[in-house]
Write a protein that binds this DNA or RNA. Structure first.
Lengths: 344, 344
DNA sequence: GTGAAAGCGCTAACAC
DNA sequence: GTGTTAGCGCTTTCAC
């Protein structure tokens, strides 16, 4: 037997299809008793509204797109980052019966711009969640912007007045981590910078300097190395940092992957963590708990950020309220095994 | 200006909308010159067919659902597994302008069954890719089956005559790994079994026994420990295995996470890998390359498997050809740093 | 090889 | 509070 339509329900409940529609969409202006009758009919026929018909009639796709840099194209994937964002968006979608459209892409491709435009024009999502580091790339932001589809940037680093973004308080949190390290007695705290395109990660460097200042330590360029967010670059920076005569007693890396690289190098060099060297990362990716010693890090509330982003988009798609400004989420300092008191 | 519809194109090209439809869908019976005219009009108006209208008229959702166990609900996520499957399905979808609907779920929930049924009845995907270990759970398989929506099981472990599945040759590959270990001179090769619900992982245990036999080694229950696929269980098994008087010189774990647990324990005990102990895993998750020493493992062609699964579903949705049998993919033996010659 | 007409199952606008 | 009607933009069927 064919699937029930809104007409079948209307007939059985002895109301018009519009009333059924009202009940299904939780619209007001339905008498409680009528509503009950309709609901009984729906139950009886196990009626489910047809999404395609709904989308066509309402001129909305009920689709939220999540666009991110393709982790499977990396040497070292940061899959956990993506999974957590997906989970967040999914939470927001479920509550609004939207679907999630995922689109991993490679920002190094010459024509990501037109690829994204085609995607958007074809699928017509009601809104777009744009993850870092794509959220910081003018080429990409402007391609998306040109489609006029509402979008939210995640971890955008630089706010601008024209759109809405959600991010973590990178600077404040990094300052907190630095102060924590200083409170452990470390006087020589090195920092490994991240990918220059990733602005949010750039703010962590600023926070590191703030934290140093707060703790009465002075900043020195010689304690700073520049990585590119990959484990391998973390290894390279650590190799340089740890080969010095007066090597630092603590290293704070702008993300966990690089911190993991530091741990790996220290292990090879026979430098004991945390006895001789404290290491801290940022992000709390899965790897952070998986390595030994487990990494002290800052947990980014990625899921919550993505959820908020999607919620804002969904709300905008119904209310058309302007989508501007920025929301900030606080990171949590997770103290694990890789940090300890400075060697005497 | 509003978006162009099929009528606008038809008018501009001076044909009927049906002809435009034919061109757009690559249907036959259009004269080359007509086709060209239509294409020019499409280009000029930058026309994009409306997916919602298409779905409604064709009674297909053009959606492929990917259902998997939620990695973000784990203590230790296996996010890479999911990302690779997503990438595979996405490849198949792109070629057929389908969209991917992802649905992470928690198989421990009492009512996953009805959750999945609701999802399927609401979103009405044209087909479903069901990932392991869900693909082995009768409760879940039958819930999906009851919706009559075509589905493919990935790494199903046990074939049955009623559906289609794609999997890796777990048994043969594990035998190969075991023979490789034996060829290195190891005489005492231990095995850590995986989660009992995960049938594919069970086949690896069979392969281990085959490999032992092939190499003239005899199987001993005392060299087998049972884990549950988690890092922590790998640590527990390793702790037991390595505390013995005559500890094994090689440990083969049914997945990488457990192998990583072994590495961690060996590290704590001061047992050098690979000099004193060889460790091998299975799956080639990201973690396998991230730990030190990098893990020798079997790379599961997950992306290809998922892609094939989705392709089969898409083909079925157009041709209605029966979806039965099983396709098998070969794993690749990846020799990295964690295995070496048996200690003299 | 091409076209006309009839839906697909819903929402929106407005009438009652 | 409730119903009527007209689309939404395509695909399908069938006629030519």
């Amino acid at each position: 037997m064919a699937r029930a339509t809104i007409f079948d329900v209307a007939k059985l409940a002895e109301v018009s299809i519009k009333t059924v529609s009202r009940v299904v969409n939780n619209e007001p202006n339905v008498r409680a008793s009528t509503k009950e009758r309709v609901e009984k009919a729906i139950e009886e026929l196990s009626y489910r509204p047809d999404q395609a018909a709904r989308n066509l009639a309402s001129q909305r796709s009920h689709l939220i797109a999540l666009i991110y840099d393709d982790p499977s194209s990396y040497e070292i994937p940061s899959a956990g980052y993506v999974i957590r964002m997906q989970a967040g968006v999914l939470r927001a979608c479920r509550d609004a019966n939207c679907e999630l459209l995922i689109h991993p892409c490679n920002y190094q491709d010459k024509d990501v711009g037109s690829e994204l435009k085609t995607l958007i024009e074809t699928a017509r999502p009601d809104g777009i969640v744009l993850a870092a580091p794509l959220s910081n790339m003018p080429r990409i932001v402007s391609a998306i912007s040109s489609t006029k589809t509402p979008f939210v940037r995640v971890s955008a680093g630089n706010k601008n007045g024209k759109d809405y973004s959600v991010s973590m308080n990178d600077r404040e949190s990094s300052a907190e981590m630095t102060r924590y390290l200083a409170s452990l007695g470390h006087k020589s705290i090195a920092f490994i910078k991240g990918h220059p395109k990733h602005k949010a990660v750039g703010n962590r460097f600023l926070g590191y300097q703030d934290g140093l200042r707060d703790s009465g330590l002075k900043f020195s360029e010689s304690l700073v190395e520049a990585g590119d967010n990959s484990i391998r670059s973390g290894e390279a920076c650590a190799t340089s940092l740890l080969a010095r005569e007066n090597r630092p007693t603590a290293i704070f890396a702008a993300n966990d992957d690089m911190a993991a690289g530091v741990v790996r190098v220290a292990d090879r060099l026979g430098i004991s963590i945390p006895d001789e060297l404290s290491v801290a990362g940022c992000d709390d990716v899965a790897l952070a708990q998986q390595i030994y010693p487990a990494l002290t890090t800052l947990r980014q509330p990625l899921g919550a950020m993505a959820e908020r982003a999607a919620q804002a988009l969904i709300e905008h798609s119904t209310t058309k309220k302007a989508l501007r400004g920025a929301d900030t989420f606080s990171a949590t300092l997770l103290i694990r095994e890789s940090t300890g008191p400075a060697p005497k």
